[in-house]
Each structure stands twice: as structure tokens, then as C-alpha cells.
Design a binder for these strands. Structure first.
Length: 556
RNA sequence: GCCCCCGUAGCUCAGCUGGAUAGAGCGAGUCACUUCUAAUGACUGGGCCGCAGGUUCGAAUCCUGCCGGGGGCGCCA
């Protein structure tokens, strides 16, 4: 019996009560009820607050009732349900449910049978989801802000896939415009041995790329500055972008679509978007420019989409891009941005409304707060001008891909994080990724020993009656709900926190429940049943780590 | 000035989308290894959940106002 099954059982009880005329529920019976694991020992295996939630609406014999009386009524029927051992009414009207050992022990076999599929659901089945993240312009190596979303965005994609969605990961970049001009003029300056221009980019990578461009295109030295800069632009952007892609690939993140801003203008998507918005009466001309009426959709003010000099403003690309995504059939478009871009949220949501769509549904903008790296307790400061950018490679070189991805995905993206490089490279249990990976290695080791002894797992759910076995079973049963909540709330960190809790629960089980026979002890059904539980733990740890893009090592 | 995010144990943070006596890890103290990986576990101490109101059976959670910290507010991209 897992929480979802218990919820169904309770719903069945409510329906039976209604069918028998024992109660009336004017709004109908809910399709599911809240089932939680009580924090407090002595409150049963699971608790539900249905009676408290429904007491106001429920009527018994045409009369209103109070939560306790209603709870008593539900408890009486629930006690008779399959898999339920005991029901207690407590406090203001909570129902504390103790599950029969056999029903609970079944979870282990169910998990093992499901294997890699365990944790999946159809919560987002049939949804076409577009995740746009990182989207850094190719003017330098990927810096920390982008890396946070690489880890979190990819994990979110994996979580959505686990809940049945059809996910496309997308990277949007522009290969023209002022930033790219500054990049290419910086390359040119470097090649000529001159200092970086004002507003230019500094740093060793500029010199490296400038040299590489010269090597690939020796003729660049013969050209005048304007032509040379064009070559640096073309070749340099290409090289920079390849480097970013490679860094991301090594980080375990690959995109399905790399979208060029330029293609929107070439394909006419921008014009189509503007036409559409104009037809809907959401644009107007003023001061020689074309404006979008974003203010009436909640933005601070209206936005220019075509400047008075006739060139499209940056937002025009966003208009075309959004329309293009919608035309490609994405009902849910996510854009993940750094905190320094939160000013976009208002105008982007307004744009979404201007198209007649629903912000928060068709378009969701997620904001990730700042990331700082701490080395010896001191923050590593960044400066683009000086070229002291902290990059994805700095992070990975310091603590590795697994720790990097875990550290970035472990926190709510709304909170700023400091990543202590010393902590995250330590092989001790104050390093969270280590704790979880170690638990997996420990489980794997036990499975190997079992194989050596010729002990194989078998399902004997009724034998898993130890308190620590129950706790572990309930933790394992929780996984699908955690994945679902992570998807619904767009919070991958829930998976990481859950895995840490599971690791602890496993260690406690391991400490008090001997799994394998000692010495010449006979192998019993309890040994085999516990081995099944251990295997189930292995499955969940591995599946959970996979959702975060972190490896599950068998030895450490 | 306006907007967004944050404020929970000495530290780093969770808190199951309003539930019961507020949780974990680290750090501090005590204890347990003829080990299935002790890279672990058990126990102890530690809190006006920033402050003040409000909403209700019930608030760390929702609303309002303050205080403190971080970030952002271009016909830049």
C-alpha cells in the first residue's frame, strides 16, 4: 500500500458513505485526498486531514457536523478496508492510519518490478513542453549563472519526462548585434596586439580564440579592419559556440534545438508576430517608433518593438520566437533566466497576454538567483571586463560534474547560493552528493555480496515488520509523489532533498536490520525479503540521481 | 521612487503547496566497530520561524504594513 492507494481507499470510503446515505456532500466526493507521512511517531504510518477539510460541507442526516464526529464515521469504515490495520482519530480530527505489514511490504517488490520506470507517472502525459535555458550569447565561456540553469533546467526536463511530458530542450542565441560586435572587435584588437576596446571583453580566452582564428584564416591579416572584424565575428562566434556546446555536453546537457535569433528575422516570424499583434489592436505608432501595448497587460510601460530608425528592438525577436514556439505546437513554454533579467518577466507575460495566451500556463518564466563560488571561504569575484569570469569549467575542474550538478540542483532556484568548493569536493558525509552516492555504493556492495553468497531476493511482504523496514518502505513509496511535486512546482531540489533523506533512512535500516546470513547461518525468507528491500532502495537511489543527471556509482 | 527574490537552531538549509509537540546535515558533547563499505548509527544540548497586525477550527506557510539583505528597472542585447 502506497500513499496514492491509501488516498483511493479513503475516497472509496467517502463514496460508500454517500451511496449509503450516511452523509451528503453537496460539492461531491473529491477525487483524491491528502495523505501525508506524519512527522511525529505515534501518529500512524500515514495521516489524512480529510475530515478537517470536509467537515464544513458534509451533512449527516441533514445536519452539519464537526470534524471529530465525521472522522469517527470515516474511521469506522476505513478500518474494514483491505490493507488497513488500524485507524485512530486524533487531535482536532486527523485520521492516523496504520497499514498492514503485508500491504506495506509489497512496495519493495513493486519498486523492483518497475525498475527504471519506478517514479514515473502520467501527470504531464500529452503535454508538449519547451524548455529554454542557458541561452548565453557566444561572447565568452559559460559563466556560473548559465551553469545553474544548465543543471536545474536539464533536471527539470528529466523530471517532466518522468511525469509523461514530451520535452524539447532549447538554446536561444544571437550571432549578431552589439554584444557580438564588441566580442569581434575585442578579438581583432587582441590579434593586433592592442588592448581590449572600451566595453570590450578581456581575458585569456579572447587571446586564445583570436590566435585560433588567425591560425584557421591566415588571410585575415591582409584584410582591412572592417573586413577582418567580419572574419573574427564569423569564425570567432563559431568557435566560442562550439566550446560552449562542448562544455555543456561534458556537463551532461545536450539541447534538441539551438535556435538562432537571426533565423526569426530571416523567416519572417517577427513580421508575422507583429502583424498578428497589430490585428489584435495591441500595437501603435508614436514618436516614429512602433510600440507594443504591454502596459494594459500588466507591464510597467509599453515597449518599443521597431525603433524610430526602422530597426527591430530586441523584444521583437522574443515576439517572433514565442509565436514560433506556439506554432511548433508547444502548449507550455518555459524560459529560465538569471535574476539580472527579472525585469523581463513583466513584459514577457504581457506579450503572452497580447497574443491572447495565458501567462503562467502557455508561458512560464523562471528566475534563478545568483550563484557564488567560495574558495577557502572567500567568494570568487567576477568581472567581465577583466576577464575574471568564473566559468562552467572552473566549477567542474574544482569539484567534478556530479558534485556540480548536484550542488546547483539541490537548492530552490529562488534562493541565492554559495557553493563552497572545499565542501563539495570532500569525501565525507557533510558533502550531500557524497552521502547519496555513498548510500548507492553501499547498497550495490551488499547486492554483490548477496550474489557471491548465492542469496537472491524474494518477495515476502508480510515479513518486513521491523520499524526501520517500515520507515524505509514508506520512504520508497514516497518517490513518485516527490517526482510529481517537483514537476508541478518546477522544483528539482525536492528530488535531491528526498534522496538525502532516503540515504539516511537506509543507513538506519542497515544499522538495525541484518540483511545477509552470517557465517554458516541458513538463508531464511527474511534474508531474501530484506534483500528485495535493499534492491528497491538501489532502484530508487539510482532513479533519483538520474533525474538530477548525477551518476550512481556501484563502488566508491 | 517602483518591481522581483530572500529572512527558520552557532553554520548551511528543508519544511510534503494551511495541519498535530518545528526538521535534517554540519559544528559541540557522550556512546557503539570479531563490520553486510563505521565513508555508519544511537543519544544529549541548541528556536519570540525578521517585527507588528489580519484572515480561520489551525499560520513558518496566505494577506497588509514595516525592518534588514540581494538583484533589477534603456528606442542596450
Amino acid at each position: 500500500m502506497n500513499p496514492d492507494q491509501l488516498s483511493e481507499t479513503i475516497v472509496d470510503v467517502l463514496q460508500a458513505l454517500v451511496a449509503d446515505g450516511a452523509i451528503t456532500l453537496p460539492d461531491g466526493v473529491p477525487t483524491q485526498v491528502t495523505v501525508e507521512r506524519p512527522r511525529q511517531k505515534g501518529h500512524g504510518d500515514y495521516a489524512t486531514n480529510v475530515a478537517l477539510q470536509l467537515a464544513k460541507r458534509v451533512q449527516i442526516g441533514g445536519q452539519g457536523t464537526n470534524p471529530r464526529a465525521f472522522a469517527d464515521l470515516v474511521a469506522e469504515r476505513l478500518r474494514a478496508a483491505d490493507g488497513v490495520a488500524e485507524v485512530e482519530v486524533a487531535g482536532p480530527g486527523f485520521l492516523n492510519v496504520t497499514v498492514e505489514a503485508g500491504a506495506q511490504g509489497q512496495v519493495a517488490a513493486d519498486v523492483v518490478a518497475a525498475g527504471e520506470a519506478y517514479g514515473s507517472s502520467d501527470a504531464f502525459a500529452g503535454e508538449k513542453i519547451n524548455l529554454e535555458f542557458v541561452s548565453a550569447n557566444p561572447t565568452g565561456p559559460l559563466h556560473l549563472g548559465g551553469v545553474r540553469w544548465a543543471a536545474v533546467g536539464d533536471a527539470l526536463g528529466r523530471i517532466f519526462e518522468k511525469t509523461g511530458a514530451d520535452v524539447t530542450r532549447e538554446y536561444y542565441f544571437n550571432d549578431h548585434g552589439a554584444q557580438i560586435d564588441r566580442f569581434s572587435s575585442s578579438l581583432l584588437a587582441s590579434a593586433k596586439g592592442e588592448p581590449a576596446p572600451e566595453d570590450g571583453y578581456g581575458g585569456q580566452y579572447i587571446h586564445d580564440i583570436a590566435a585560433a582564428v588567425v591560425e584557421r584564416r591566415p588571410d585575415v591579416k591582409e584584410l582591412d579592419d572592417a573586413q577582418a572584424q567580419e572574419v573574427f565575428r564569423e569564425v570567432g562566434v563559431d568557435m566560442m559556440f562550439e566550446e560552449i556546446k562542448k562544455s555543456l555536453h561534458d556537463f551532461g546537457v545536450d539541447f534538441d534545438v539551438y535556435f538562432h535569433e537571426k533565423s526569426l528575422h530571416d523567416s519572417g516570424a517577427v513580421e508575422r508576430a507583429i502583424e498578428r499583434l497589430t490585428e489584435m489592436g495591441n500595437t501603435y505608432e508614436a514618436d516614429g517608433a512602433l510600440w507594443l501595448r504591454t502596459e494594459q497587460y500588466g507591464d510597467d510601460k509599453d515597449r518599443v518593438i521597431i525603433r524610430s530608425n526602422g530597426t527591430p528592438a530586441y523584444i521583437s525577436g522574443d515576439l517572433g520566437y514565442y509565436l514560433d514556439k506556439r506554432e511548433r505546437g508547444f502548449d507550455r513554454c518555459f524560459i529560465m533566466l538569471g535574476a539580472d533579467h527579472h525585469g523581463y518577466v513583466g513584459r514577457m507575460n504581457a506579450m503572452c497576454s497580447a497574443f491572447g495566451d495565458e501567462p503562467g500556463k502557455n508561458l512560464e518564466i523562471l528566475i534563478g538567483q545568483m550563484v557564488n563560488l567560495l574558495r577557502d571561504g572567500e567568494p570568487m569575484r567576477m568581472s567581465k571586463r577583466a576577464g575574471t569570469v568564473v566559468t562552467i569549467d572552473d566549477l567542474v575542474d574544482a569539484i567534478g560534474v556530479d558534485a556540480s550538478r548536484y550542488a546547483l540542483a539541490r537548492y530552490h532556484s529562488d534562493s541565492p547560493i554559495d557553493i563552497d568548493l572545499d565542501l563539495w569536493s570532500r569525501a565525507t558525509n557533510d558533502n550531500p552528493v557524497f552521502t547519496v552516492q555513498y548510500a548507492h555504493a553501499r547498497v550495490s556492495s551488499l547486492m554483490r555480496n548477496a550474489a557471491d553468497l548465492g542469496v537472491s531476493a524474494a518477495s515476502h511482504p508480510e515479513l518486513l515488520t521491523h520499524e526501520k523496514e517500515g520507515e524505509l518502505l514508506r520512504a520508497l513509496a514516497e518517490f513518485p509523489r516527490v517526482v510529481k511535486a517537483a514537476a508541478e512546482l518546477r522544483e528539482p531540489h525536492r528530488v535531491a532533498r528526498y534522496l538525502e533523506e532516503l540515504a539516511g533512512t537506509y543507513h538506519r535500516f542497515y544499522d538495525s536490520c541484518r540483511v545477509l546470513p552470517r557465517g554458516d547461518e541458513e538463508t531464511s525468507d527474511l534474508h531474501r525479503a530484506r534483500l528485495m528491500l535493499v534492491d528497491a532502495t538501489r532502484v530508487v537511489l539510482a532513479n533519483g540521481l538520474d533525474l538530477l543527471g548525477v551518476s550512481a556509482p556501484e563502488r566508491m
